[in-house]
Amino acid sequence: MVNKTLYLTAALIVLCLVFVAVNGIGAVKIEFKEIIAIIASKVPVLGKGITGGWKETHETILVQVRLPRTLLAVLVGACLSVAGAIYQGIFKNPLADPYIIGASSGAALGAALAIFLSLNLSFLGIGAVSMLAFLTSILAVFLVYNMARVGHRVPVLTLLLAGIALSSFLSAVVSLLTYLSGDKLGHIIFWMMGSLSSRSWSYVYSTLVSFLAGILIAFYYARDLNILLLGEDTAVHLGIETERVKKILLATASILTAASVASSGLIGFVGLIIPHTVRIAVGPDHRWLIPASALTGGTFLLLADTIARTVFAPTELPVGIVTAMFGGPFFIYLLKKRKTSY
C-alpha cells in the first residue's frame, strides 16, 4: 500500500500529462504547447485572452476529432472502473466486473437490434445504436434484480446467478441476430469489440452526465460500501439499510456501465482490472478507491485507445482487443505476485 493522497495526486498529474500528450499523436502531429494553448483558449472566461499562435487546421483536428475521442476514452475508462469498484464491493468479490449482472449482454442486444433493423434515428446527436444499447442494458439489470428478489431481499448470490442466466439467454439472441444479419455482420461484431472512433461531442456530454452523477453517489455511499464488505448482517448491525443501499449502488453502477457501453461498445477488462489494481495500491477503502479508480481507469483507457488508433494506422483496432491484450497478462502478473488468495 502506498500513501493514498500521494497516489491520488500522482494519478491526476499523470492523467493530465498523458491526456495532453496523446492528443498530439496521430497522422498530424500537434505540439504539446499548441495543445495546451488551444485547450486553454476554450476555457470560458479565463481563456479569453489566449488567441493565435497555432494552425487553424490543428485547432479543427483537435477540437472536432481528437478531443471528443480522448475525453470520451477518459470518461468511459473512469465509468467502467468506478462501476467495477462498486460491483466488487457489493458482491464482496474482487473478481466481479461491470458486466457481471447482464449490463453487457443487455446492451449488446439493443445494439444488435438497432443495427439489424438499420434504425436511423438520432436524438441530440446520439445514434439509435447507443440509445437502444443504453436502454436495454438498464432493462437487463432491472430484470435480473427482480428475478433475484426473494421477498424483500435481494441476496447477492442469487443476483449473480440470475445475471449469468439472463446473460446467456441474451447472448444467444444476439448470436441469432448476428447470424441472420447478413452484410451487417461485421458491424455488429465490431460494435461488440468496443471502439471509440468517430464519436461526437454529444457522446462526451451524455457520458459526462452519467459519470458525474455516478461518482458522486458512489462517493456518498463509499463508507456504506466499505461496511457491506464485512457482510450484510454486520452491515445491518452497524446501522446500514442494506437493501436500500444495495439498490442505489446497483442502479448507480448499472447506469455508469450502460453509459459506457452505449457510447463505446463492449470494452472488457477495464472494469475488472483497474479497481483491483488500484485496491492493491490504496487499499480497500472506497472513499479512496473510487476516485483513484476513476483517474487510473481514465488514463488506462486513454492509453489503450491511443494504441488502438495508432499502431496499425490508418486501420483501427477495436479498443477492447487492446485492453484485453494488456489487461490479461498484467492481471495474471498481479495474481501471481500477491501472497493472499486474491
Binding site: 464482496k92 464488505l229 457482510g231 485496491r279 487499499g283 480497500p284 493472499t340 488468495s341
Partner: peptide, 8 residues
Amino acid sequence: TGINFDFT
C-alpha cells in the same frame, strides 16, 4: 466470517 479485503 472471512473478510477478503485488506482493511487495516
